[in-house]
């Protein structure tokens, strides 16, 4: 990378850092480093350069410390580049937004963003929309009914504890949880919440009722919904990836089908307890 390229990369990174602080309000050095894929020292140098340029970035030390923009400073550096305009079509998850009761607002925002694009950028955005379409719902069957989704979204917005009636394995249970966020994964909605300070995920289609309680939710410092969901997903998948040997009693008529499903080699058969069964 020559000096000019380096300066372009750095300038782009500093704008991203600035916009990130503007959107988030405050972010730690490690968060920014992860977002920008650089070291914390590089973040520190970029912040110093922004301060030298007159941008009021303040830093605070300590566990809850980080960087923030002072005095409600807002940059006007919101010009959308061509490549960014091309990516705008991927904001088009109108279905899930509709489920959350945000359909009209998303459409309003989409119209305003598109209206703000210059001719070429608007053309690029339009070309993407003509060529790519996102349908996050899996094949076969309609999306699961989620009658309590908007109530849960309301609780998430208001940061209020809820009492859920939740059905799992055919049994109903009541839980008081602190909702932190909602996640749409493979067409299904999940509530990420804290129960007794432990992270829990609940499939929204299994929630039968929601009662909004008065207790406020104290969101954990530095909570990141996407990271939390990714960790929950990894845990589940790791758990599911454990290979297992299962001892089965199989009716003779089902053996050919079982062999098609899994490689069954040289299995030892014990005397069947019932006629036509192998164990």
């Amino acid at each position: 990378m020559n000096l000019s390229e380096y300066e372009n990369v750095r300038a782009s990174r500093m704008v991203t850092l600035l916009l990130h602080l503007q959107v988030r309000g405050q972010a730690s050095g490690s968060e920014l480093a992860r977002q920008l894929e650089v070291s914390e020292r590089t973040v520190q140098r970029d912040v110093e350069a922004l301060v030298a340029a007159g941008v009021p970035v303040r830093s605070t030390r300590g566990p809850a410390g980080g960087y923030r923009l002072d005095g409600g400073y807002r940059t006007r550096l919101t010009g959308v580049g061509l490549d960014e305009a091309g990516a705008l079509a991927f904001l088009g998850l109108a279905g899930p937004a509709e489920q959350l009761g945000l359909g009209d607002m998303l459409e309003g925002a989409r119209i305003k963003v598109w209206a703000s694009l210059t001719g070429e950028a608007r053309q690029r955005a339009g070309r993407t929309a003509e060529r790519f379409h996102l349908d996050p719902v899996r094949w076969y069957g309609t999306p699961e009914p989620v009658p309590c989704l908007t109530q849960l979204a309301d609780a998430v917005w208001r940061d209020r504890r809820v009492r859920l009636e939740y059905v799992r394995d055919g049994r109903a249970a009541t839980r008081e949880v602190d909702p932190l966020g909602l996640v749409l994964a493979a067409g299904d909605w999940y509530l990420v919440a804290l129960r007794d300070q432990q992270r829990r995920t609940y499939r929204v289609s299994r929630v039968r009722s929601v009662e909004l309680l008065d207790e406020p939710v104290v969101r954990p410092a530095q909570f990141d919904l996407a990271e939390t969901w990714a960790a929950a997903r990894r845990e589940l998948e790791d758990e599911e990836q454990t290979s297992v040997e299962v001892t089965l009693r199989v009716a003779a008529r089902a053996l050919p089908r079982l062999r098609r499903l899994v490689p069954v080699h040289g299995q030892a058969r014990s005397p069947s307890r019932r006629r036509g069964r192998s164990r």
Partner: peptide, 22 residues
């Protein structure tokens, strides 16, 4: 008989697909 499965999710799915025969 003892049958090896690559993961538990697949094991449950396969077993359920065989219904009362297993």
């Amino acid at each position: 008989m003892t049958v090896p499965f690559d993961n538990e999710f697949w094991a449950v799915s396969a077993i359920l697909s065989l219904g009362a025969a297993v």
